[in-house]
Design a protein around this nucleic acid. Structure first.
Lengths: 341, 341
DNA sequence: CTTTTTTCTTTACGCCCGTAAATTTTATGG
DNA sequence: CCATAAAATTTACGGGCGTAAAGAAAAAAG
């Protein structure tokens, strides 16, 4: 494939000895042409290294093979991981995934949606910012593009895939209450519906078990959750303002910050003797197993969320028609017992 | 902008009362048309919400406004951060960044390069896999597309931007030797030139200071550095196989794993009294300040690397011609003293 | 107000490919 | 070997835009 330069499909078709429409058909679906033709085309491909012009292809296809993926913050390991898994599935299914990050900002989210829409994608997988989303924009987008929403349920799109916060929080509240002091709930200002649901789930679980819910909210905006958790944690610990020595964090990143705060203030974290604090998180972030001590948490089922949302989208694209009513698929979390609580 | 649907530029031009070629000119550069025309177009834009078809635009332009960004592993916070910064600059400079991740695999890197090339980007910013790269593919790509290589110097492209490993490693080796036992060097099998340079820099620094270099390599492939560091660390610590109680890790992610290993085996980390190990890293990863204890490390200058590589690319795109010889820009690291060493 | 310059409009062509219709070739089965 | 079905070819058009050329209109300069 080091031969001369190929300008376009016309030229390539000539060199391969097959007509251009047939070559075009081959590139849409290699199985759709006769075997002998396929082999001649592939022989020519070996020799000449031609690739059809993506722009010209997509200009004329009503159904692009592009799938848009938008997440609120790609530098968050949760999204990085889940995007990795989704990209994978898209490629396997013959789609061309293209990733956007809103970098935590509404204007960039809107921008990404607009750019994405002009790419005329076959579909989109959106994890909206949540509280900071311009819901009207998201809705308008979803009206034009087959859209599955994941992670952050903003009641837009043909379906939602996410975690069952009531189940997962229930699980860990049960565990914590059964094995020691009832937990307080450590959160920052909620950025998306998950945070709210988790707080509510915590409150309900506590009440169900006959405890008084205790919610502690720390100051801080933005996506530097660890810093917020650490700074807030240091203040709360040194002021002895924590209503319980068992702390359930709204997510693992806050928990990582809180563990750092405990270290800095000399409190030993864990469930053994001599430990001052028990700290638990939620999500099972990629880094949760490497904290000191390793973080007890509830896993989000990354694989399941990635798989279900992708499959649902492919289904939606194939069917053409949206489902009769908006589906909401909730994946269950699993208790991940480590040392911190 | 809730008016009727606009099909194409023709229709939009008609509605705005300006001819299509002028509208086309406007979209390429709004300043290039007369003010009165610009205002009429913008008024129509307010009302009708039209966006030119990206595919049709790029098909006819020789110089696309796309900039490709390829990193080896986007779920690594170092790359996530630096991509975030680069994307930013591209958007500011009026380009359209598009991000690819090789997910640590050669076939996906090649795939991404091919896809990227068929997008006819104005330029590309590549952080190659390194040892696992198909250098011939990368080279062929760089011959066609103005390319800046960053992070991993594989001697391809018009320029390289990265860290000065000799400077940064020298800095931390000096510090560690001055304040306690001379460090051994903790690494895994090198995945890219940086890892090799760092080992070499360590060796030289040690010899310069009159110490015997001690390199410890742990088993493990792939991009789960923390796991590799932790598992290797546990083995080395429990077998008392570490040649020094001060350990300089090839990067922060390994160090995070090693700190977890020290915790698990009950060794206290830090430079104070009662500490069994001093552990230092390299990179100043976003998570390095949240380890327990916080990680002493050498920062890579993320901002500088992102800025210089992006600026260099824009310059290259404007100039049209490559620089007389391949530039190599090395950014200096800064010592980041925390508690772990 | 006239001349010069700038900018716009009109017209037209091309980019590279998808795709439809009509025709020809090739494969399949009896 | 022929009839039929399947697949390929030829021909033709269109998509949405860039862009060039020529002439008209508007702005700037005198």
């Amino acid at each position: 494939m080091a031969g001369r330069k190929i300008r376009n499909m016309e030229e390539f078709a000539e060199l391969s000895g097959i007509s251009r429409p047939t070559v075009s058909k081959y590139f849409r679906d290699p199985e759709s042409v006769r075997k002998s033709s396929r082999m001649r085309i592939e022989a020519a491909l070996e020799e000449y290294d031609y690739r059809p012009n993506i722009f010209a292809i997509n200009q004329n296809r009503k159904l692009t093979k592009t799938v848009g993926i938008l997440v609120p913050y790609l530098a968050d390991p949760f999204f990085a991981e889940i995007v990795r898994m989704i990209e994978w599935r898209c490629i396997d299914a013959g789609f061309w995934p293209i990733v956007f990050s809103a970098h935590g900002r509404q204007d960039l989210e809107n921008n990404a949606l607009a750019t994405l829409q002009s790419l005329k994608p076959a579909g989109a997988l959106l994890a909206p910012l949540g509280r900071h989303s311009d819901l009207e924009s998201v809705r308008r987008f979803a009206e034009e593009v087959p859209t599955i929403v994941f992670d952050s349920n903003v009641n837009v799109g043909e379906a939602f895939v996410g975690s069952d916060n009531f189940q997962s929080i229930g699980l860990i509240v049960d565990y914590l209450c059964r094995t020691g002091e009832a937990p307080c709930f450590f959160e920052m200002q909620p950025v998306n519906p998950n945070a709210n649901k988790r707080r509510e789930a915590y409150t309900r679980s506590m009440e169900r078990l006959g405890y008084e819910p205790m919610v502690v909210q720390v100051e801080g905006a933005g996506w530097e959750f660890e810093r917020i958790g650490k700074e807030g944690g240091i203040r709360l610990i040194s002021e002895k303002a924590l209503p319980s020595d068992t702390i359930l964090c709204s997510n693992d990143r806050l928990a990582i910050g809180l563990i750092a705060a405990a270290y800095e203030t000399g409190r030993r974290v864990g469930h053994g003797p001599g430990c001052a604090l028990r700290i638990a998180g939620h999500d099972d972030h990629p880094w949760a197993r490497f904290t000191c001590p390793p973080l007890t948490t509830v896993s989000q089922d990354y694989e399941a969320i990635a798989e279900k949302s992708a499959d649902l989208l492919f289904q939606l694209i194939d069917k053409g028609a949206p489902p009769p009513r908006r589906e909401e698929i909730l994946c269950e979390g699993k208790l991940v017992l480590r040392v911190s609580a």
